[in-house]
Amino acid sequence: MKAIDQTLALAWRSLVQVRRNPWELGDYSIQPILFLVLFLFVFGGAIAGSPENYLAFVLPGVIVMNMLFVTVYVGHGLNTDLTRGVFDRFRALPIPRWAPLAGRILADMVKQLLCIALLLVVGYLLGFRLETSWAHLLAMVALVLTFAVAFSWVMVLVGVIARDPEHVQLFGFTALFPITFVSSAFVPVDTMPTWLQGFVQANPVSLLADAARALMNADGPALEPALGSLAWALGIALVFAPLSVYMLNRRLARG
């Protein structure tokens, strides 16, 4: 019980921090809306004939992209704690070793949930209507959150390895841009050159976007891409969680 209280206190702290970080706050509020509106009105006509026709296609894609971008803050926050000595203060307290990381990932879940809700509301205001059921929508949210938890470990690793918080942003986004845009998140795969399609179809971002789209629009099979992205999530977690913890311990042992 005590460990849970401590994790909750650490999660609270990560959430309260956002108030005083206008950039981070913007990344959870203005940025997702901006991406949605930009993609919709700039590319909508070219890709789908009109913004109205593009909305149902692009909204799940933006939800997935935003989820990936938000995970960068897991690494950013961890790195800030490591470089500023806050992590050491926590380690000198009688709390479980995993609590600081668990608190951060838990806070990240709350941020993710708020971003998804915000995008759904803005999507609704722009004219999006759910073609499936609330249960399907919940399944979409659960799927995206599960992937987020797994992918957070990649960013934990970046946060452990990077010299300072600025480098976390740099590494994080540099890695995210190609896997986000070379995917089916924003455009149909069959419009891309054949040599690229293989990569796009295996890309977990494509699988996740396809699954989210199917769960919101009933426009294709949902189960297959959903299982595919869950397999990816499991694989990512199995590789990156132990690796991150190993590298974290190595960094801490350096003194």
């Binding site: 650490l10 702290r13 309260v16 921090q17 500023r84 000595g85 203060r89 307290l93």
Partner: peptide
């Protein structure tokens, strides 16, 4: 110490409350 520091984004009071909560 030089290395055990406080969270700069939290207020002074929030920092102390957090430590208190972590101490049970």
């Amino acid at each position: 110490g030089q290395y055990a520091s406080v969270d700069e984004k939290l207020t002074g009071r929030e920092n102390l409350i957090l430590i208190g909560r972590l101490l049970g």
